[in-house]
């Protein structure tokens, strides 16, 4: 199989609300400039472009078509789009390189979560006949999972708060983070529930943002990056769409993707866990021991731009390798209610 590596990563500042449009152009133009600048590639040298975004997040049909303006896509480009987080766009790009049709690719994701009422919009991801007509919001759904774990003795509210404390603290070193700083567990636990048993600190903030990751094959990667993050495993799976038929204390799709991708061997992991308890759950499903550094960027709890945050996890994990802080790292992305769909990308330095 062709050797493919991540050679660049950039993201827009994670913010509660941008002044920009829902087509992402204002966020993407500087992100493209930054990521291409890092790699020394001109846009004409990008062999394949692939994006991830959502019409319902934007509130418009075909909301992604204007985003290609940010590329400056003329002469025409080889390009595709997934109605998923940009992490799956990166997967499609990786596959494209493996076919030999391209030796470089740029995947991007963008989302203006602030345009609508996010937790209500996400109710439309549920079964359209027997669940969505009740409009269960995404935070309440996650809270069902959190309580199961608390009552099963899998985690405590204090451990959940510890995840938030560590995230905010780690995010202090991440200039793109939306939330960062020093908080303490006791103080967090004194605050009210927003969806009992979840408090505000247990939930990722609502974030507008965009992210881009550049892939390259073999010698092209070596030429454009001093320390490429070589992809050694890239896998994704989906679980049942029926919340009540799933064991919500497991994420078989994450576990299977992790096993197939070789998650057990990493020293660093960026997990797309929009809720504190999900980080604990994912650590277990992916077999990440205490020695693994999790979410050194602060993770989604410090900024969760919908449809870009999963891609940003892979980019952040790759950045740890490219900067020499990690030898072997994974980026994880999730989609759907209560960790229904999961993707794992394992990378290493060589």
């Amino acid at each position: 199989m062709t050797d493919v590596a991540v050679i660049g990563f950039a993201q827009a500042p994670n913010v509660r609300r941008t002044d920009g449009t829902t087509n992402g152009v204002e966020m993407l133009v500087p992100v493209f400039q930054q990521v291409l600048g890092q790699t020394g590639l001109a846009k004409e040298q990008v062999g394949f472009w692939c994006s991830g975004s959502s019409d319902y997040l934007a509130g418009r049909a075909f909301s992604f078509v204007s985003a290609v303006d940010a590329i400056g896509a003329f002469p025409p480009v080889m390009e595709s789009h997934v109605e998923m987080d940009g992490a799956w766009a990166l997967y499609e790009a990786w596959v494209k390189i493996l076919t030999g049709e391209a030796s470089t690719a740029l995947a991007y994701g963008f989302g203006k979560s602030s345009a609508g009422l996010l937790r209500r919009v996400l109710a439309l991801q549920l079964d359209p006949y027997v669940v969505a007509p009740l409009w269960p919001d995404s935070v309440s759904i996650a809270a069902l999972q959190a309580r199961l774990g608390i009552e099963a003795g899998r985690w405590t509210e204090e451990q959940m708060a510890q995840v938030a404390v560590r995230s905010r603290s780690a995010a202090a070193g991440n200039p793109a983070a939306q939330l960062s700083g020093t908080v303490d567990v006791a103080e967090l636990l004194s605050r009210p529930y927003i969806a009992d048993p979840l408090r505000a600190h247990d939930c990722a903030p609502i974030t507008d943002g965009a992210a881009a990751v550049v892939l390259a094959a073999g010698d092209v990667a070596r030429e454009h990056c001093a320390r490429p993050a070589w992809i050694t495993g890239f896998e994704h799976r989906i679980d049942s769409g029926s919340l009540g038929a799933r064991d919500l204390l497991a994420a078989p799709s994450a576990a299977a993707a992790g096993r197939a991708a070789g998650a057990g061997t990493v020293d660093t992991a960026e997990l797309h866990s929009p809720f504190t308890h999900q980080e604990i759950l994912l650590r277990g499903e992916l077999g990440l021991g205490e020695q693994v550094t999790v979410n050194p960027s602060g993770g989604p709890l410090s900024g969760n731009p919908m449809f870009a945050a999963g891609l940003a996890r892979i980019g952040s994990a790759a950045a740890e390798i490219m900067a020499g802080r990690a030898g072997r790292a994974l980026g994880h992305a999730t989609s759907g209610p209560a960790l229904q769909q999961n993707l794992v990308c394992v990378m290493e330095a060589r």
């Binding site: 992604f64 595709s80 799956w88 799976r237 989906i238 769409g241 799709s253 299977a256």
Partner: peptide
């Protein structure tokens, strides 16, 4: 009127436990 209907369709399509991609290029 369904956001990412493939999520709910995973069971009917026999995709549970497998990779599933959702493409949208107009």
């Amino acid at each position: 009127g369904v956001m990412m209907p493939e999520l709910y369709l995973a069971d009917a399509l026999g995709a549970v436990g497998k990779p599933l991609l959702r493409v949208h290029t107009a």
